[in-house]
Write a protein that binds this DNA or RNA. Structure first.
Lengths: 189, 189
DNA sequence: TGTACATCAGTGAACGCGCGTTCACTGATGTAC
DNA sequence: TGTACATCAGTGAACGCGCGTTCACTGATGTAC
Protein backbone atom coordinates (compact mmCIF):
# COMPACT_ATOMS: atom_id res chain seq x y z
CA UNK A 1 0.00 0.00 0.00
CA UNK A 2 1.30 3.39 -0.89
CA UNK A 3 0.57 6.27 1.42
CA UNK A 4 0.31 10.03 1.23
CA UNK A 5 3.51 12.00 0.97
CA UNK A 6 4.03 12.72 4.65
CA UNK A 7 2.65 9.43 5.89
CA UNK A 8 6.03 7.88 6.61
CA UNK A 9 7.26 10.97 8.43
CA UNK A 10 4.14 10.90 10.58
CA UNK A 11 4.59 7.23 11.44
CA UNK A 12 8.25 7.92 12.24
CA UNK A 13 7.20 10.66 14.63
CA UNK A 14 4.57 8.46 16.24
CA UNK A 15 7.19 5.79 16.92
CA UNK A 16 9.57 8.35 18.44
CA UNK A 17 6.87 9.78 20.70
CA UNK A 18 5.61 6.41 21.88
CA UNK A 19 9.21 5.29 22.50
CA UNK A 20 10.06 8.47 24.42
CA UNK A 21 7.01 7.79 26.59
CA UNK A 22 7.70 4.11 27.22
CA UNK A 23 11.46 4.43 27.66
CA UNK A 24 10.89 6.98 30.42
CA UNK A 25 7.97 5.19 32.03
CA UNK A 26 8.99 1.53 31.75
CA UNK A 27 12.70 1.71 31.01
CA UNK A 28 14.64 1.17 27.79
CA UNK A 29 15.54 -2.44 28.52
CA UNK A 30 12.00 -3.32 29.54
CA UNK A 31 10.46 -1.87 26.37
CA UNK A 32 10.26 -4.39 23.54
CA UNK A 33 10.00 -3.25 19.92
CA UNK A 34 7.29 -5.80 19.24
CA UNK A 35 5.06 -4.41 21.98
CA UNK A 36 5.95 -0.82 21.05
CA UNK A 37 4.89 -1.24 17.41
CA UNK A 38 1.80 -3.20 18.38
CA UNK A 39 0.81 -0.31 20.64
CA UNK A 40 0.81 1.91 17.55
CA UNK A 41 -1.28 -0.55 15.54
CA UNK A 42 1.73 -1.63 13.48
CA UNK A 43 3.74 -4.83 13.10
CA UNK A 44 7.29 -5.14 14.35
CA UNK A 45 8.86 -5.88 10.97
CA UNK A 46 8.14 -2.39 9.72
CA UNK A 47 10.31 -0.87 12.42
CA UNK A 48 13.48 -1.21 10.36
CA UNK A 49 12.07 0.94 7.58
CA UNK A 50 12.31 3.78 10.11
CA UNK A 51 15.35 3.06 12.27
CA UNK A 52 18.67 1.30 11.86
CA UNK A 53 18.38 -0.44 15.22
CA UNK A 54 16.85 -0.16 18.67
CA UNK A 55 19.87 1.88 19.79
CA UNK A 56 19.14 4.30 16.95
CA UNK A 57 15.59 4.73 18.26
CA UNK A 58 16.84 5.10 21.83
CA UNK A 59 19.07 8.00 20.84
CA UNK A 60 16.32 9.64 18.78
CA UNK A 61 13.77 9.22 21.57
CA UNK A 62 16.21 10.61 24.13
CA UNK A 63 16.78 13.67 21.91
CA UNK A 64 13.04 14.10 21.60
CA UNK A 65 12.52 13.86 25.37
CA UNK A 66 15.45 16.19 26.05
CA UNK A 67 14.09 18.83 23.68
CA UNK A 68 10.67 18.47 25.28
CA UNK A 69 12.21 18.91 28.72
CA UNK A 70 14.11 22.02 27.64
CA UNK A 71 10.94 23.53 26.25
CA UNK A 72 8.98 22.64 29.36
CA UNK A 73 11.71 24.05 31.61
CA UNK A 74 11.85 27.26 29.59
CA UNK A 75 8.09 27.57 29.91
CA UNK A 76 8.24 27.10 33.68
CA UNK A 77 10.77 29.90 34.07
CA UNK A 78 8.80 32.34 31.96
CA UNK A 79 6.61 33.81 34.72
CA UNK A 80 7.62 36.65 36.99
CA UNK A 81 9.06 34.16 39.52
CA UNK A 82 11.17 31.97 37.21
CA UNK A 83 12.85 29.69 39.73
CA UNK A 84 9.77 29.28 41.84
CA UNK A 85 7.90 28.23 38.70
CA UNK A 86 10.59 25.75 37.77
CA UNK A 87 10.78 24.20 41.23
CA UNK A 88 7.02 23.90 41.55
CA UNK A 89 6.74 22.25 38.18
CA UNK A 90 9.73 19.94 38.38
CA UNK A 91 9.15 18.89 41.96
CA UNK A 92 5.41 18.38 41.56
CA UNK A 93 3.54 15.15 42.24
CA UNK A 94 2.29 15.47 38.67
CA UNK A 95 5.84 15.22 37.36
CA UNK A 96 6.69 12.40 39.75
CA UNK A 97 3.61 10.39 38.79
CA UNK A 98 4.06 10.82 35.04
CA UNK A 99 7.64 9.81 34.28
CA UNK A 100 6.66 9.03 30.69
CA UNK A 101 6.01 12.72 30.04
CA UNK A 102 8.80 14.06 32.23
CA UNK A 103 12.48 14.73 32.48
CA UNK A 104 14.62 11.99 30.90
CA UNK A 105 17.52 12.50 33.33
CA UNK A 106 16.31 10.20 36.13
CA UNK A 107 15.02 7.66 33.59
CA UNK A 108 16.62 7.24 30.16
CA UNK A 109 19.90 9.04 30.88
CA UNK A 110 20.35 7.18 34.16
CA UNK A 111 19.76 3.81 32.48
CA UNK A 112 22.13 4.56 29.62
CA UNK A 113 24.76 5.80 32.07
CA UNK A 114 24.52 2.57 34.03
CA UNK A 115 24.84 0.58 30.82
CA UNK A 116 27.97 2.52 29.93
CA UNK A 117 26.20 3.99 26.90
CA UNK A 118 26.01 7.62 27.97
CA UNK A 119 24.86 9.98 25.22
CA UNK A 120 26.05 13.48 24.34
CA UNK A 121 22.38 14.37 24.43
CA UNK A 122 22.38 13.97 28.20
CA UNK A 123 25.39 16.26 28.54
CA UNK A 124 23.72 18.88 26.39
CA UNK A 125 20.46 18.70 28.32
CA UNK A 126 22.26 19.06 31.64
CA UNK A 127 24.32 21.98 30.38
CA UNK A 128 21.26 23.74 29.03
CA UNK A 129 19.25 23.22 32.20
CA UNK A 130 22.17 24.50 34.29
CA UNK A 131 22.43 27.60 32.12
CA UNK A 132 18.72 28.19 32.33
CA UNK A 133 18.76 27.96 36.13
CA UNK A 134 21.92 30.00 36.41
CA UNK A 135 20.42 32.89 34.47
CA UNK A 136 17.79 33.33 37.15
CA UNK A 137 20.13 33.01 40.10
CA UNK A 138 21.77 36.23 41.27
CA UNK A 139 25.24 36.39 42.74
CA UNK A 140 28.65 35.18 41.71
CA UNK A 141 27.95 31.67 42.96
CA UNK A 142 25.14 31.20 40.46
CA UNK A 143 26.98 28.57 38.46
CA UNK A 144 27.81 26.41 41.47
CA UNK A 145 24.38 26.92 43.00
CA UNK A 146 22.68 25.79 39.81
CA UNK A 147 24.57 22.48 39.94
CA UNK A 148 23.50 21.83 43.50
CA UNK A 149 19.95 22.80 42.65
CA UNK A 150 19.67 20.51 39.63
CA UNK A 151 21.21 17.65 41.60
CA UNK A 152 18.67 18.09 44.39
CA UNK A 153 15.82 18.30 41.88
CA UNK A 154 16.78 15.13 40.04
CA UNK A 155 17.62 13.30 43.27
CA UNK A 156 14.38 14.22 44.99
CA UNK A 157 12.33 13.18 41.96
CA UNK A 158 14.18 9.86 41.76
CA UNK A 159 13.91 9.09 45.46
CA UNK A 160 10.26 10.07 45.54
CA UNK A 161 9.61 7.58 42.74
CA UNK A 162 11.68 4.83 44.38
CA UNK A 163 9.89 4.75 47.66
CA UNK A 164 6.97 2.52 48.68
CA UNK A 165 5.34 4.63 51.36
CA UNK A 166 3.37 7.49 49.72
CA UNK A 167 3.86 9.68 52.78
CA UNK A 168 7.63 9.34 52.59
CA UNK A 169 7.44 9.98 48.85
CA UNK A 170 5.53 13.20 49.42
CA UNK A 171 7.84 14.25 52.22
CA UNK A 172 10.92 13.86 50.01
CA UNK A 173 9.36 15.84 47.18
CA UNK A 174 7.72 18.60 49.19
CA UNK A 175 10.56 19.14 51.62
CA UNK A 176 13.11 19.49 48.84
CA UNK A 177 10.79 21.85 47.01
CA UNK A 178 10.22 23.96 50.12
CA UNK A 179 13.93 24.03 50.95
CA UNK A 180 14.95 25.12 47.48
CA UNK A 181 12.14 27.68 47.29
CA UNK A 182 13.26 29.14 50.62
CA UNK A 183 16.82 29.31 49.41
CA UNK A 184 15.84 31.04 46.20
CA UNK A 185 13.73 33.56 48.12
CA UNK A 186 16.64 34.30 50.46
CA UNK A 187 19.13 34.71 47.67
CA UNK A 188 16.82 37.02 45.76
CA UNK A 189 16.00 39.15 48.83
CA UNK B 1 28.49 -34.60 46.65
CA UNK B 2 27.90 -33.69 50.24
CA UNK B 3 29.63 -30.66 51.66
CA UNK B 4 30.76 -29.42 55.04
CA UNK B 5 28.12 -28.14 57.41
CA UNK B 6 28.28 -24.46 56.55
CA UNK B 7 29.01 -24.93 52.85
CA UNK B 8 25.49 -24.11 51.69
CA UNK B 9 25.33 -20.99 53.83
CA UNK B 10 28.62 -19.84 52.35
CA UNK B 11 27.43 -20.41 48.79
CA UNK B 12 24.21 -18.57 49.62
CA UNK B 13 26.22 -15.61 50.85
CA UNK B 14 28.47 -15.68 47.80
CA UNK B 15 25.41 -15.50 45.53
CA UNK B 16 23.97 -12.58 47.50
CA UNK B 17 27.23 -10.65 47.37
CA UNK B 18 27.81 -11.23 43.67
CA UNK B 19 24.19 -10.26 42.95
CA UNK B 20 24.42 -7.10 45.08
CA UNK B 21 27.50 -6.17 43.06
CA UNK B 22 26.05 -6.90 39.63
CA UNK B 23 22.59 -5.50 40.29
CA UNK B 24 24.17 -2.18 41.26
CA UNK B 25 26.78 -2.15 38.52
CA UNK B 26 24.87 -3.60 35.55
CA UNK B 27 21.25 -3.31 36.61
CA UNK B 28 18.77 -5.91 37.84
CA UNK B 29 17.15 -6.49 34.46
CA UNK B 30 20.49 -6.77 32.68
CA UNK B 31 21.84 -9.37 35.11
CA UNK B 32 20.99 -12.94 34.09
CA UNK B 33 20.98 -15.75 36.62
CA UNK B 34 22.88 -18.01 34.25
CA UNK B 35 25.76 -15.55 33.95
CA UNK B 36 25.63 -14.76 37.67
CA UNK B 37 25.99 -18.39 38.72
CA UNK B 38 28.63 -19.03 36.08
CA UNK B 39 30.62 -16.12 37.50
CA UNK B 40 30.69 -17.98 40.82
CA UNK B 41 31.80 -21.22 39.17
CA UNK B 42 28.35 -22.79 39.59
CA UNK B 43 25.61 -23.91 37.24
CA UNK B 44 22.31 -22.10 36.97
CA UNK B 45 20.12 -25.01 38.02
CA UNK B 46 21.45 -24.91 41.56
CA UNK B 47 20.14 -21.40 42.06
CA UNK B 48 16.72 -22.62 43.17
CA UNK B 49 18.17 -24.57 46.07
CA UNK B 50 19.00 -21.14 47.51
CA UNK B 51 16.23 -18.77 46.40
CA UNK B 52 12.56 -19.04 45.53
CA UNK B 53 12.92 -16.83 42.47
CA UNK B 54 14.98 -14.01 40.98
CA UNK B 55 12.74 -11.51 42.76
CA UNK B 56 13.60 -13.24 46.02
CA UNK B 57 17.30 -12.74 45.31
CA UNK B 58 16.72 -9.13 44.26
CA UNK B 59 15.12 -8.33 47.60
CA UNK B 60 17.85 -10.17 49.53
CA UNK B 61 20.61 -8.46 47.56
CA UNK B 62 18.98 -5.06 48.06
CA UNK B 63 18.84 -5.67 51.80
CA UNK B 64 22.49 -6.68 51.76
CA UNK B 65 23.49 -3.55 49.82
CA UNK B 66 21.34 -1.33 52.03
CA UNK B 67 22.90 -2.72 55.22
CA UNK B 68 26.34 -2.23 53.67
CA UNK B 69 25.49 1.36 52.79
CA UNK B 70 24.23 2.07 56.30
CA UNK B 71 27.44 0.69 57.78
CA UNK B 72 29.57 2.63 55.33
CA UNK B 73 27.62 5.83 56.00
CA UNK B 74 27.94 5.35 59.75
CA UNK B 75 31.68 4.86 59.32
CA UNK B 76 31.99 8.06 57.29
CA UNK B 77 30.25 10.10 59.95
CA UNK B 78 32.41 8.74 62.76
CA UNK B 79 35.29 11.22 62.50
CA UNK B 80 35.34 14.60 64.19
CA UNK B 81 33.75 16.20 61.11
CA UNK B 82 30.87 13.81 60.50
CA UNK B 83 29.08 15.54 57.63
CA UNK B 84 32.28 16.51 55.88
CA UNK B 85 33.34 12.89 56.04
CA UNK B 86 30.03 11.71 54.66
CA UNK B 87 30.01 14.20 51.80
CA UNK B 88 33.60 13.47 50.83
CA UNK B 89 32.96 9.76 50.79
CA UNK B 90 29.56 9.74 49.12
CA UNK B 91 30.43 12.36 46.52
CA UNK B 92 33.83 10.90 45.68
CA UNK B 93 34.94 9.77 42.23
CA UNK B 94 35.69 6.45 43.89
CA UNK B 95 32.01 6.03 44.77
CA UNK B 96 30.90 7.24 41.36
CA UNK B 97 33.21 4.86 39.53
CA UNK B 98 32.32 1.81 41.61
CA UNK B 99 28.53 1.59 41.59
CA UNK B 100 28.76 -2.14 42.32
CA UNK B 101 30.16 -1.40 45.76
CA UNK B 102 28.14 1.72 46.43
CA UNK B 103 24.79 3.09 47.48
CA UNK B 104 21.85 1.12 46.07
CA UNK B 105 19.56 4.16 45.90
CA UNK B 106 20.58 5.44 42.44
CA UNK B 107 20.83 1.88 41.11
CA UNK B 108 18.68 -0.96 42.48
CA UNK B 109 16.08 1.18 44.26
CA UNK B 110 15.70 3.46 41.25
CA UNK B 111 15.20 0.51 38.90
CA UNK B 112 12.68 -1.18 41.17
CA UNK B 113 10.82 2.10 41.61
CA UNK B 114 10.57 2.52 37.85
CA UNK B 115 9.31 -1.05 37.54
CA UNK B 116 6.64 -0.32 40.12
CA UNK B 117 8.22 -2.84 42.47
CA UNK B 118 9.43 -0.49 45.20
CA UNK B 119 10.68 -2.28 48.31
CA UNK B 120 10.25 -1.40 51.97
CA UNK B 121 14.00 -1.84 52.17
CA UNK B 122 14.47 1.36 50.17
CA UNK B 123 12.18 3.28 52.51
CA UNK B 124 14.08 2.01 55.52
CA UNK B 125 17.46 2.86 54.03
CA UNK B 126 16.33 6.39 53.16
CA UNK B 127 14.83 6.92 56.62
CA UNK B 128 18.00 5.67 58.30
CA UNK B 129 20.28 7.82 56.15
CA UNK B 130 18.10 10.86 56.82
CA UNK B 131 18.25 10.23 60.57
CA UNK B 132 21.99 9.77 60.43
CA UNK B 133 22.49 13.06 58.57
CA UNK B 134 19.97 14.87 60.73
CA UNK B 135 21.82 13.93 63.90
CA UNK B 136 24.83 15.84 62.73
CA UNK B 137 22.97 18.89 61.49
CA UNK B 138 22.34 21.60 64.08
CA UNK B 139 19.26 23.81 64.14
CA UNK B 140 15.55 23.20 64.04
CA UNK B 141 15.55 22.77 60.26
CA UNK B 142 17.79 19.70 60.50
CA UNK B 143 15.08 17.32 59.33
CA UNK B 144 14.24 19.34 56.23
CA UNK B 145 17.88 20.07 55.49
CA UNK B 146 18.75 16.41 55.62
CA UNK B 147 16.17 15.66 52.92
CA UNK B 148 17.58 18.30 50.63
CA UNK B 149 21.10 17.08 51.33
CA UNK B 150 20.37 13.43 50.57
CA UNK B 151 18.49 14.43 47.40
CA UNK B 152 21.46 16.47 46.20
CA UNK B 153 23.88 13.63 47.05
CA UNK B 154 21.90 10.98 45.18
CA UNK B 155 21.15 13.33 42.29
CA UNK B 156 24.75 14.44 41.85
CA UNK B 157 26.01 10.86 41.93
CA UNK B 158 23.41 9.81 39.36
CA UNK B 159 24.06 12.72 37.02
CA UNK B 160 27.80 12.30 37.30
CA UNK B 161 27.39 8.69 36.23
CA UNK B 162 25.00 9.55 33.38
CA UNK B 163 27.20 12.01 31.61
CA UNK B 164 29.61 11.34 28.76
CA UNK B 165 32.09 14.16 29.21
CA UNK B 166 34.42 13.36 32.15
CA UNK B 167 34.93 17.06 32.84
CA UNK B 168 31.21 17.65 33.20
CA UNK B 169 30.98 14.54 35.36
CA UNK B 170 33.66 15.88 37.68
CA UNK B 171 32.12 19.32 37.75
CA UNK B 172 28.74 17.94 38.83
CA UNK B 173 30.28 15.83 41.57
CA UNK B 174 32.81 18.32 42.90
CA UNK B 175 30.59 21.37 42.74
CA UNK B 176 27.81 19.65 44.66
CA UNK B 177 30.31 18.41 47.19
CA UNK B 178 31.84 21.88 47.62
CA UNK B 179 28.41 23.51 47.88
CA UNK B 180 27.16 21.10 50.52
CA UNK B 181 30.44 21.27 52.43
CA UNK B 182 30.23 25.08 52.45
CA UNK B 183 26.66 24.94 53.66
CA UNK B 184 27.53 22.55 56.46
CA UNK B 185 30.43 24.75 57.52
CA UNK B 186 28.17 27.80 57.59
CA UNK B 187 25.44 26.09 59.57
CA UNK B 188 27.92 24.76 62.08
CA UNK B 189 29.67 28.11 62.48
C1' DT C 1 36.43 -51.80 61.28
C1' DG C 2 33.73 -52.62 57.03
C1' DT C 3 29.75 -52.23 54.21
C1' DA C 4 25.05 -50.55 52.71
C1' DC C 5 22.33 -46.82 52.45
C1' DA C 6 20.47 -41.86 52.89
C1' DT C 7 21.36 -37.18 52.14
C1' DC C 8 21.20 -33.12 49.31
C1' DA C 9 24.20 -29.22 47.01
C1' DG C 10 25.08 -28.92 42.70
C1' DT C 11 24.54 -30.58 37.49
C1' DG C 12 22.93 -29.79 32.94
C1' DA C 13 19.30 -30.70 29.56
C1' DA C 14 14.91 -29.02 28.57
C1' DC C 15 10.54 -25.98 28.93
C1' DG C 16 8.13 -21.87 26.85
C1' DC C 17 8.84 -17.19 26.08
C1' DG C 18 10.07 -12.61 24.28
C1' DC C 19 13.96 -10.37 22.59
C1' DG C 20 16.29 -7.73 18.29
C1' DT C 21 16.77 -8.47 13.61
C1' DT C 22 16.05 -10.27 8.71
C1' DC C 23 13.50 -10.99 4.66
C1' DA C 24 10.33 -12.45 0.97
C1' DC C 25 6.11 -10.73 0.29
C1' DT C 26 1.59 -7.60 -0.21
C1' DG C 27 -1.19 -4.31 -2.27
C1' DA C 28 -2.84 0.57 -2.65
C1' DT C 29 -1.35 4.37 -4.95
C1' DG C 30 1.39 7.27 -8.29
C1' DT C 31 3.48 7.50 -12.77
C1' DA C 32 4.26 6.29 -17.77
C1' DC C 33 2.38 5.56 -22.06
C1' DT D 1 -9.30 8.26 -20.35
C1' DG D 2 -7.55 3.50 -19.73
C1' DT D 3 -4.09 0.17 -18.74
C1' DA D 4 0.53 -1.63 -17.33
C1' DC D 5 3.99 -1.09 -14.29
C1' DA D 6 6.98 0.75 -10.34
C1' DT D 7 7.11 2.15 -5.71
C1' DC D 8 7.66 1.19 -0.93
C1' DA D 9 5.34 1.40 3.96
C1' DG D 10 3.89 -2.10 6.22
C1' DT D 11 3.20 -7.50 6.95
C1' DG D 12 4.21 -11.61 9.36
C1' DA D 13 6.94 -15.83 9.50
C1' DA D 14 11.40 -17.10 10.78
C1' DC D 15 16.37 -16.64 12.67
C1' DG D 16 19.34 -17.43 16.85
C1' DC D 17 19.67 -16.09 21.45
C1' DG D 18 19.30 -15.59 26.47
C1' DC D 19 15.85 -15.28 29.79
C1' DG D 20 13.62 -17.50 34.37
C1' DT D 21 12.28 -21.83 35.82
C1' DT D 22 11.81 -27.06 36.27
C1' DC D 23 13.47 -31.55 37.00
C1' DA D 24 15.62 -36.13 36.81
C1' DC D 25 19.98 -37.05 37.97
C1' DT D 26 24.99 -37.36 40.22
C1' DG D 27 28.16 -38.55 43.58
C1' DA D 28 30.92 -37.40 47.79
C1' DT D 29 30.14 -37.62 52.41
C1' DG D 30 27.76 -38.82 56.87
C1' DT D 31 25.16 -42.24 59.35
C1' DA D 32 23.41 -46.99 60.61
C1' DC D 33 24.41 -51.45 61.47
Amino acid sequence: MRYSEDHKAKTHQRIVEEAALRFRRDGVGATGLQSLMKGLGLTHGGFYAHFKSKDDLVETALQHAAAEQERSTARMTQGDTPLQGLLKGYLSSRHRDNPGAGCPLPTISAELGQRGEASETTDTLIRNLLTLIEQHLPGEDASAESVQMLSAMVGALLLSRSVKDPELADRLLKTTRAQLLAKVATVQA
